[in-house]
Write a protein that binds this DNA or RNA. Structure first.
Length: 507
RNA sequence: GUCCCCAUCGUCCAGAGGCCUAGGACGUGGCCCUUUCAAGGCCAAAACCCGGGUUCGAAUCCCGGUGGGGACGCCA
């Protein structure tokens, strides 16, 4: 089995296309097939090498890999259509020779005018066949005169073209609704419908899995396969991914590209898992035990691949639900390696204005505290604000908030601050256990308890009324104090100093 | 306009004629846990688009309607 993903490098990788790539990859990896990446850059105007690089980067980020592609080569290359022009030219010539294609001299303006008229008259919007029966002599003289001509494929008349779609079943079109498509533009560049067919045939693609928007191109392509003597591959058309309102997913709905989801702080495994859930369910009928079926929907990519099958893909379009993506992200955030999360969150800290040295001790410290944030947050971009108290600590700043100041200036909290400073003064390294011990002594010393005791302590240690769990914050701050000198971690202060500062500030 | 595809809780899926008093997940509401916010646990509300057939029996099959989407390009 050979499958492919064939994006055109005209922009960012869209999540809908990413899902198509994913389903192809699932199939290849789940059943030992080959996955090919091919770049369809025949639109010279819009294709850019930057887009190609971005698409490759995003596919890699998602964790996809391919067996053949423009960046790694392969036996059936090249894998960029712009580098295969001679192939299209020779096949087009062949079709011309055997009379299955013909030159078309119609201009864009003429075509548009006639199309509009025909659409009103009988609803047919395809090519009207004006150049279909030009004589050889005619064509030769016009060519000799220097007139530019495109090459069109002659769609056979009065035929049914059908195929068995792997997700939809039987699909049938009558050739009367298909106009002769351009296969080579006047400039000598192939048109999409022709290039895909030549490439898929030559590259030995056995299953074409693509978006539903291509379903009506399929009959043209099948006819092209036949005309050139190729055996058509199996086709599968995936329903499209829509926005929450079931209109086509667009910027107006928020993020639409893989790159945007990355910069919003989603983990690739979460996006992959979520995307797989649109239009497909990883549930396996064989796992139904005692009438209760498998409940989880969260699986690593290789497991999704193992379970994947085209026949289980839904026929209807699915709406993109960022809430559910966020849920998947929370899950993967919780099970990810802290060291990796520390690495991944670096740019988010940078954006938040918190610079963290790349020194190993700094990264080690970050890794040790990152679970404080990732255990409660939905995305990586929320991490810095959760952890800011470790880096940007200041008594003054904390007391600038009216509500906090009022609360801290009350007798109870003031007593807690003073007692905490005193207790901490003689305390060696703090960990959760020691902290509980200290808190207990503060409780005894002040007679405060519950919220009245812990709320002031939280404000002292985090400078905020809410936030990371104290159990985790305490040892984190304590470690930071030890690391601060020369570690490249700016302005980290230990518990002892914080308590003392507050005690002083509150009088 | 013509052709094609699709139609189960707000959303994503399960359901391939009786197992359905329609199941799961996200989200929502409530309760529990808890020194806060979360997380976690438990419970709840919530759907077969409409109309005709076929059948002893239809969410499941057929036809029509309606609704949504796609295509009709010298874009892909």
């Amino acid at each position: 089995m050979r499958v492919r993903f064939a994006p055109s490098p005209t922009g960012q990788l869209h999540v809908g296309n990413a899902r198509t790539a994913l389903f192809n990859w699932f199939l290849a990896r789940g059943r030992g097939g080959e996955f090919i990446l091919r770049i369809e850059d025949t639109d010279v105007e819009r294709s850019t090498i930057e887009s190609e690089a971005a698409i490759v980067r995003d596919l890699r980020w998602l964790g996809l890999d391919w067996d053949e592609g423009p960046d790694i080569g392969g036996a059936r290359g090249p894998y960029r259509q712009s580098e295969r022009l001679h192939l299209y030219q020779s096949y087009a010539q062949e079709l011309l020779t055997i009379g299955k294609a013909y030159r078309c001299f119609c201009t864009k303006e003429q075509l548009e005018a006639r199309r509009a008229a025909a659409m009103d008259a009988d609803g047919f919007a395809g090519y009207d066949g004006a150049c279909r029966r030009l004589s050889v002599a005619d064509v030769d003289t016009r060519l000799a005169r220097g007139e530019k001509a495109a090459i069109r494929f002659r769609i056979p008349e009065n035929r049914d073209v059908g195929f068995t779609d792997a997700v939809r079943g039987e699909v049938r079109f009558h050739t009367s609704v298909i106009g002769d498509p351009v296969i080579m533009r006047a400039e000598g560049v192939p048109a999409y419908n022709f290039a895909v067919v030549v490439d898929d045939a030559l590259m030995g693609v056995t299953q074409v899995i693509r978006g539903e928007d291509h379903i009506s191109n399929t009959p043209r392509q099948i006819l092209l396969y036949e005309a050139m003597g190729f055996t058509p591959p199996a086709f599968a058309h995936l329903s499209l991914v829509m926005g929450p309102d079931h209109a086509p997913l667009s910027k107006r709905h928020g993020a639409t590209s893989v790159a945007e989801f990355r910069t919003k702080g989603y983990l690739p495994e979460a996006l992959v898992n979520y995307l797989a859930l649109i239009g497909w369910s990883p549930r396996d009928a064989t796992e139904v035990v005692d009438g209760a079926s498998e409940q989880s929907e969260l699986f690593p990519a290789h497991e999704l691949a193992r379970r994947f099958s085209l026949s289980a893909v839904t026929h209807s379009a699915g709406a993109f639900d960022e809430e559910k993506l966020a849920w998947a992200n929370r899950h993967y955030l919780k099970i990810a390696e802290p060291a990796r999360l520390a690495e991944l969150s670096l740019p988010f800290f940078h954006n938040a204005g918190i610079s963290i040295a790349s020194a190993p001790e700094a990264m080690e410290f970050l890794a040790s505290v990152i679970p404080i944030a990732t255990s409660v947050v939905s995305r990586l971009d929320e991490v810095p604000s959760r952890l800011a108290f470790l880096f940007n600590y200041s008594v003054e700043q904390a007391l600038e908030h009216d509500d906090l100041r009022h609360e801290m200036l009350a007798d109870g909290p003031r007593a807690v601050a003073v007692a905490l400073a005193r207790e901490l003064a003689d305390e060696p390294r703090l960990d959760r256990e020691r902290f509980r011990h200290v808190a207990n002594r503060v409780k005894v010393a002040t007679g405060q308890k519950g919220r009245a005791l812990f709320h002031p302590i939280r404000v002292i240690l985090t400078g905020r009324a809410e936030g990371p769990e104290l159990d985790l914050a305490v040892p984190a701050i304590d470690r930071g104090a030890d690391l601060a000198p020369g570690s490249g971690l700016p302005r980290i202060t230990g518990c002892r100093e914080r308590a003392a500062d507050f005690s002083k500030a509150l009088g």
